[in-house]
Lab assay of single mutants.
Amino acid sequence: SEEELIEKAEKLRKEFEFIWNGIRFIIRENADEIRRFEELLKE
């Protein structure tokens, strides 16, 4: 039914948001290391 689809979509959206926030947190935490690594690659 349509309601089930909406519920599934909402659940997926929440899971995606949770994963995305996790990725963003990891990137933020490691931003300095990532930048340093990029500098090494440029040399």
Rank of each mutant, 00 (worst) to 15 (best):
S1H: 09
S1P: 06
S1V: 08
S1Q: 09
E2D: 07
E2Y: 13
E2N: 11
E3I: 12
E3H: 09
E3P: 05
E4H: 06
E4P: 05
E4Q: 05
E4W: 14
E4D: 08
E4V: 07
L5S: 04
L5Y: 03
L5A: 09
L5R: 03
L5W: 13
I6R: 10
I6N: 05
I6W: 11
I6H: 13
I6Q: 07
E7M: 05
E7A: 05
E7Y: 05
E7D: 04
K8N: 09
K8W: 14
K8S: 11
K8G: 06
A9I: 13
A9Y: 12
A9P: 08
A9C: 15
A9T: 11
E10H: 12
E10P: 02
K11F: 12
K11L: 10
K11V: 10
L12I: 06
L12P: 03
L12V: 03
L12Q: 02
R13A: 09
R13E: 09
R13C: 13
R13H: 12
K14A: 06
K14Y: 08
K14C: 14
E15M: 15
E15T: 14
E15R: 12
E15V: 15
E15D: 10
E15N: 05
F16W: 12
F16A: 01
F16G: 02
E17V: 07
E17W: 14
E17D: 02
E17L: 13
E17C: 14
F18D: 02
F18K: 09
F18N: 04
F18R: 07
F18M: 04
I19L: 05
I19S: 01
W20C: 12
W20I: 12
W20K: 00
W20E: 00
N21R: 08
N21C: 15
N21T: 06
N21I: 15
N21H: 03
G22S: 12
G22D: 04
G22L: 15
I23C: 15
I23K: 00
I23M: 00
R24T: 11
R24F: 14
R24K: 08
F25R: 09
F25H: 07
F25G: 03
F25P: 07
F25V: 05
F25D: 13
F25K: 04
I26L: 07
I26A: 01
I26K: 00
I27R: 00
I27S: 01
I27V: 03
I27N: 00
I27T: 01
R28L: 10
R28Y: 10
E29D: 09
N30F: 15
A31L: 09
A31T: 11
A31D: 02
A31W: 13
A31E: 04
A31N: 03
D32E: 05
D32V: 07
D32I: 05
D32H: 09
D32G: 05
E33V: 15
E33I: 15
E33K: 10
E33L: 15
I34F: 03
I34Q: 01
I34R: 02
I34T: 02
R35K: 11
R35Y: 06
R36E: 03
R36L: 11
R36C: 13
F37K: 00
F37Y: 06
F37S: 00
E38H: 07
E38K: 07
E38V: 14
E38W: 14
E38C: 15
E39L: 04
E39W: 07
L40M: 08
L40V: 03
L40Y: 07
L40W: 12
L40G: 01
L41W: 11
L41A: 02
L41H: 01
L41V: 04
K42D: 03
K42A: 09
E43Q: 11
E43D: 10
E43T: 06
E43N: 12
E43R: 07
